[in-house]
């Protein structure tokens, strides 16, 4: 930017505050352990050594919502579980993001019946939907990178 162009390579980088904050938010986003059903197993596979999630800064899967930024809703949400999901979402501090992983979380999946909430966006606002039943770990990583791109474009006032 300005200073580097004038004075050459001083080992400095200049950024806007917005870019810096978004950069820190994406590089160490801690997911909350919210695996419900089959997608949770693929999320665990993504966490394991073959498709490593810790290279994205997501090594720590916190079970406590108070210490996490990202809620990956992995699996089918039943009507009994929906109030629990909302309560956990409310307990997460800002800034927080939600990935709806899998078909059941995005739209109810193959279970179009009385017991399953047809899409977790009826309960919490969702940022990224990842399709698949279950989505491959690579698809989940693609969803996370999409979320990173989305966060990098956020304005500073997005999370009050």
């Amino acid at each position: 930017m300005g200073v580097e162009a004038k004075l050459g390579d001083l080992g400095l980088v200049t950024l806007t505050l917005e870019k810096a904050i978004n950069w820190t938010r994406t590089r160490s986003m801690w997911p909350m352990l919210f695996g419900l059903a089959c997608c949770a197993i693929e999320m665990m596979s993504a966490q394991a050594s073959h498709y490593d999630l810790s290279r994205f800064g997501m090594e720590l899967m916190r079970a406590s919502p108070r210490q996490s930024d990202l809620m990956i809703v992995a699996g089918r949400v039943t009507r009994k579980m929906a109030p629990v999901l909302r309560r956990l979402y409310d307990q997460m501090p800002d800034p927080k993001w939600v990935i709806a992983m899998g078909d059941c979380a995005s739209c109810g999946g193959i279970f179009n019946n009385y017991a399953i909430v047809q899409g977790v966006d009826e309960v919490v606002p969702v940022d990224v939907y990842v399709a698949g039943c279950p989505p491959r770990p690579e698809a989940l990583i693609h969803g996370i990178i999409t979320l990173h791109h989305k966060v990098e474009k956020e304005k500073l006032a997005a999370h009050a």
Binding site: R76, T78, K80, M81, Y114, I116
Partner: peptide
């Protein structure tokens, strides 16, 4: 019951081959 999916009822509304997916 937090993961009760109603599979048994859903399988009654599908033919035998199609219910295999569930």
């Amino acid at each position: 019951g937090f993961l009760h999916t109603g599979v048994e009822k859903n399988m009654e509304s599908k033919t035998y081959i199609k219910a295999l997916v569930m």
